[in-house]
Write a protein that binds this DNA or RNA. Structure first.
Lengths: 192, 192
DNA sequence: TTCACTTGATAACAAATGTTATCGCGGCCT
DNA sequence: AGGCCGCGATAACATTTGTTATCAAGTGAA
């Protein structure tokens, strides 16, 4: 796991030594909240094992905005950077093995890492990826029917279909769980 | 106009001198395409006067994703940076007075500007803002009815309601233009 | 085992939204 | 003035999607 992080951040041995000293391991069961809506984010999480969803509350209903799996990085990036209350909850779906670094520790070792342009690039790339995710997901709401969105999800992220409970997928696709059932049975009839 | 750009980028006089030398003025009528879907973006535009919409084609229909007005910066940021074909069209809605800088010129003067951390910050802030825009717009699709989305738009961006033809607004809100008409007449009846 | 709980399927009905067609208004050109 | 055209409103109808209720299967705990 640590090796994967090292590669991800393209660090030298000495740089990585300081960095990895700040990493703490965390094992938690399913349905554990890692960050609550309204709190100010203090940590960045790396997923070694398990999966996580990001969601917000609307009128008592969960609205899921993103899923994360192994070898991905999760944080409320806007809360972390601007120190504003997070709009989003971060919650485990499965039992998870995580590594996290606190903002405080990260700032402590930042001077040492500052001349590593790869780290800054990594940060910008992360921002880019998040922007792309929101952009593409938003476009699919303008462009596609719920059926089409589900089919695209099956093709591009089968892991979500396999590992995530259906009502979370429904809210991610912007439909009721009843309607997602309808979509699935519609597909089954076609393929039968 | 040039003064506004100088402030926006927080440049010193000498830095701005080099920068402004690369800026070219452009006056174009309404419905002018500044960047076509599929092309690779080469320019960044600043709007002195007029308004612009960003859209993509789906099955022969325009789907509008964003509007820009005076003193805003427009570019297909992902096409520009990654040199990939733009997913989006950039098109004027009104007669516009624009200033643009080509990517080539920007790179030419970049060494001179590189030690200006404000410029890098500005770039990251721009990325952040775009991410926020997509994030919030996407959330509103999960969270709100079309009526609510229209009301929010009236409150937060009345300029769009005032200056943009209705069928563009409809596609931006993800509804048919007929339904947007219904929403407006519904609001008129309430307020009467 | 048995009971509670969660998940997913289905039916019946209600509400929201799209589609197509028509009309009228106002701008603009000749 | 006359006529064309783009935009927006409206009506009628079709389709999609949400809501509520019910049931069945699976899972975990006492």
């Amino acid at each position: 796991m640590l090796e994967q992080l090292k590669r991800k951040f393209r660090m030298s041995d000495s740089q990585f030594a300081g960095f990895s000293g700040c990493l703490k391991k965390l094992e938690v069961p399913a349905k554990t909240t890692l960050l609550k809506e309204g709190e100010i984010a203090k940590k960045i999480f790396f997923i070694e094992k398990g999966c996580i969803r990001v969601w917000f509350n609307n009128d008592g209903k969960d609205l899921t905005t993103q899923f994360f799996f192994e070898n991905e990085t999760v944080a409320s990036i806007e809360s972390l950077k601007k120190e504003i209350p997070s709009l989003l909850n971060i919650e485990t779906i499965e039992t998870c093995v995580l590594w996290y670094i606190s903002k405080q520790d990260l700032e402590k070792i930042l001077p040492e890492l500052e001349n590593v342009s790869a780290l800054r690039d990594e940060f910008i790339n992360n921002l880019f990826e998040r922007m792309f995710h929101y952009m593409n997901h938003f476009f699919s709401f303008l462009r596609d029917s719920p059926l089409k969105r589900y089919q695209t999800l099956m093709q591009e992220k089968p892991m979500i279909i396999q590992r995530v409970p259906q009502h979370y997928i429904a809210s991610y696709l912007g439909v009721s769980s009843v309607h997602l059932s309808r979509i699935k049975s519609q597909l089954n009839r076609k393929n039968a």
